[in-house]
Amino acid sequence: MQTNYLMNTEEDIAQAARLLQAGEVVAFPTETVYGLGADATNDEAVGKVFAAKGRPADNPLIMTVGDVEQIAPYVQITDQAKQLMAAFWPGSLTMILPIKEGMVSMLVTGGLQTAAIRMPENEVTRALIRQAGFPIVGPSANTSGKPSPTTAAHVKHDMAGKIAGIVDDGPTQVGVESTVIDLTAKTPTILRTGAVTQEELQKVLGVEVADATSTKSIADDQAPKAPGMKYRHYAPDKDVYVFDPLDWDDLQTKLGENDAVMADEALLKQLKNADQPSWSLGENLNQASENLFAGLRFFDDVPEIEKIYVESMPEIGLGKAYNNRLAKASGGRLFQGPESE
């Protein structure tokens, strides 16, 4: 299959919309990561997304919309959903809501009677969806299980020849996927951390919001309500180790010449070996979240790199989402000093 490489011009957006209308798969930009789009009402088109990603069929897909009006035919919009839409849409928040009977493909919901809905901040993508005339599915545009794509080049690396088009709107700004909140539970519950924090959600809703990201386990025969809950995610082929910045000096005594380190600018300025493979996470938490997946993907493609050591961040705000993705990428491997492996 030929993959059309498109830019963010009106003509290219119109071409991408026509591809979607023809039942094809098109990668699109958001403020978080690049997504893989197809007509959410077309089972055949949705099936192409699963095939391109190599994604398990019981792993639900997020429905991405261009405006609030697009979701009304498909899901029941609760009062809490209206509150959160007013506060955070367009933006990095996905809501799980009850579906209207017969209106949403079971391929999209993973066989459940709920659907995950999001309206991204990216203007190009919202224009694309409005021109297409229907909601599109929007999983990250990468091979299933691998680090999410934050540039069109990342998408091309994984998806060239597998999908019909890629719309390039430059690097993403957030770098980690949206927060997912389940509004069908008795207590609103975060199923995936992201840029919208638990504290912000509680302030808008005026009620307790639970966080199930560290405690929610999914059985083999159970369908997850949100992406990233059940299957291996964000993981390079190389071994990834998480290190605390307090262990920086010890880590430097452990690094081999084929080990890569990903850290903030302040730590990298203290790197003793000028030839050590390194990747800057930037100067603050927002930049670290933007740069995490790009660094993991970069070193995963360098043949001589054997291990990747990545700095953890304070467990507050966006740091929770950053550390969550990093924990999944590392499979829980921690650097704990010069004697540890």
Rank of each mutant, 00 (worst) to 15 (best):
Pro29Arg: 05
Thr30Asn: 04
Thr30Trp: 02
Thr30Pro: 00
Glu31Leu: 05
Glu31Lys: 02
Val33Glu: 03
Val33Ile: 05
Val33Met: 10
Tyr34Ile: 04
Tyr34Val: 03
Leu36Phe: 01
Asp39Phe: 13
Ala40Asp: 05
Thr41Cys: 13
Thr41Ala: 10
Thr41Ser: 11
Thr41His: 07
Glu44Lys: 14
Glu44Phe: 10
Glu44Ile: 11
Ala45Gln: 01
Ala45Lys: 01
Gly47His: 08
Gly47Lys: 06
Gly47Ile: 06
Gly47Trp: 08
Gly47Pro: 07
Lys48Phe: 07
Lys48Met: 06
Val49Glu: 09
Phe50Lys: 08
Ala51Val: 15
Ala51Tyr: 15
Ala52Phe: 13
Lys53Asn: 07
Lys53Leu: 03
Lys53Gly: 05
Lys53Val: 02
Gly54Phe: 06
Gly54Val: 03
Arg55Ala: 09
Pro56Ser: 14
Pro56Asp: 12
Pro56Gln: 10
Ala57Tyr: 13
Ala57Met: 14
Ala57Gln: 13
Asp58Trp: 06
Asp58Gln: 05
Asp58Leu: 02
Pro60Tyr: 05
Pro60Ala: 00
Met63Asp: 10
Met63Gln: 15
Thr64Leu: 15
Val65Gln: 05
Val65Met: 11
Val65Asp: 07
Gly66Leu: 03
Gly66Phe: 00
Gly66Asp: 04
Val68Glu: 13
Val68Trp: 08
Val68Ala: 12
Val68Arg: 11
Glu69Pro: 01
Glu69Ile: 08
Gln70Asn: 00
Ile71Gly: 09
Pro73Asn: 02
Pro73His: 11
Tyr74Leu: 03
Tyr74Val: 10
Tyr74Lys: 00
Gln76Trp: 09
Gln76Ala: 13
Gln76Thr: 15
Gln76Glu: 15
Asp79Lys: 08
Asp79Cys: 00
Gln80Tyr: 14
Gln80Pro: 09
Ala81Phe: 08
Ala81Cys: 10
Ala81Glu: 08
Lys82Asp: 02
Lys82Thr: 09
Gln83Gly: 04
Gln83His: 09
Gln83Ile: 06
Leu84Val: 02
Met85Thr: 12
Ala86Arg: 11
Ala86Lys: 09
Ala86Phe: 03
Trp89Ala: 07
Ser92Val: 04
Ser92Gly: 12
Ser92Cys: 12
Ser92Trp: 10
Leu93Cys: 06
Thr94Glu: 03
Met95Pro: 06
Met95Ser: 08
Leu97Trp: 00
Pro98Met: 05
Pro98His: 01
Ile99Gln: 07
Ile99Phe: 06
Lys100Ala: 04
Lys100Cys: 00
Lys100Thr: 05
Glu101Val: 13
Glu101Cys: 11
Glu101Met: 12
Gly102Thr: 10
Val104Cys: 00
Val104Gln: 03
Ser105Ala: 01
Leu107Ile: 11
Leu107Trp: 13
Thr109Met: 05
Thr109Cys: 11
Gly110Arg: 10
Gly110Val: 06
Gly110Asn: 02
Gly110Thr: 00
